[in-house]
Amino acid sequence: MFIEPMLLETAPGPFSHSQYIFEPKVDGHRLVFDQEAGRVRLFTRHHNDCTSRYPELVHPFENDITLDGEVACVDPSTGVSDFESVMMRLKTGKHDRIQRLTKTLPATFVIFDILRYRGKDLRSLPLVQRKEILSGIKLPSKAFGIMPFIESEGESLFAQIQRMKMEGIVGKRKDSRYVSQRSAAWQKVINWTYEEVYLTGYRKDEFGWLAAVPDLSGKLRPAGIIEFGTGPKDRKDFYIKSQRLETGEDKSFVYLKPEIRAEVKIRNWTKAGLLRDPVFTRFIIN
Results as ranks from 00 to 15, higher is better:
74 V>C: 11
264 V>F: 03
134 L>A: 05
92 T>R: 08
82 D>R: 12
233 K>Y: 14
35 Q>F: 07
155 E>I: 02
68 D>T: 04
13 G>M: 08
162 Q>Y: 01
102 T>H: 07
261 R>I: 07
193 T>K: 15
124 S>D: 13
139 L>H: 02
127 L>R: 08
236 K>V: 09
192 W>E: 04
177 R>C: 13
170 V>G: 03
237 D>Q: 11
126 P>D: 07
185 A>R: 06
151 E>V: 06
187 Q>E: 14
175 D>N: 10
258 P>G: 07
108 T>E: 12
138 K>H: 14
169 I>L: 07
275 L>D: 03
214 P>I: 00
140 P>G: 13
227 E>N: 14
201 G>K: 02
158 F>P: 04
242 S>L: 06
82 D>P: 05
188 K>V: 04
54 Y>L: 09
233 K>W: 02
34 D>G: 12
116 R>S: 15
18 S>P: 02
156 S>K: 14
233 K>H: 10
132 E>Q: 14
222 P>I: 04
229 G>W: 05
64 D>V: 02
63 N>L: 11
45 R>S: 15
187 Q>H: 02
109 F>W: 06
70 E>W: 08
172 K>N: 03
181 Q>W: 10
102 T>W: 01
219 K>F: 14
71 V>K: 09
162 Q>M: 09
16 S>R: 01
158 F>G: 00
273 G>M: 02
273 G>D: 04
160 Q>W: 05
76 P>S: 11
104 T>P: 00
174 K>A: 06
75 D>V: 06
252 S>N: 15
238 F>W: 04
185 A>Y: 03
76 P>V: 11
223 A>C: 10
197 V>T: 02
14 P>M: 01
16 S>I: 05
255 Y>F: 15
127 L>M: 11
188 K>D: 08
132 E>D: 11
211 A>Y: 05
250 D>V: 02
159 A>I: 04
268 N>H: 13
138 K>D: 11
209 W>M: 10
247 T>N: 03
266 I>Q: 10
174 K>Q: 04
20 Y>L: 03
122 L>C: 05
142 K>A: 15
53 R>F: 10
60 P>M: 08
48 N>F: 13
207 F>Q: 08
11 A>G: 03
44 T>C: 07
106 P>Y: 03
129 Q>Y: 10
144 F>L: 11
283 F>D: 08
165 K>V: 11
273 G>L: 01
89 R>L: 08
171 G>S: 09
245 L>M: 12
2 F>E: 07
215 D>T: 10
194 Y>E: 11
60 P>I: 15
262 A>E: 12
76 P>F: 13
192 W>L: 05
3 I>G: 14
94 K>R: 13
120 K>Q: 14
206 E>G: 13
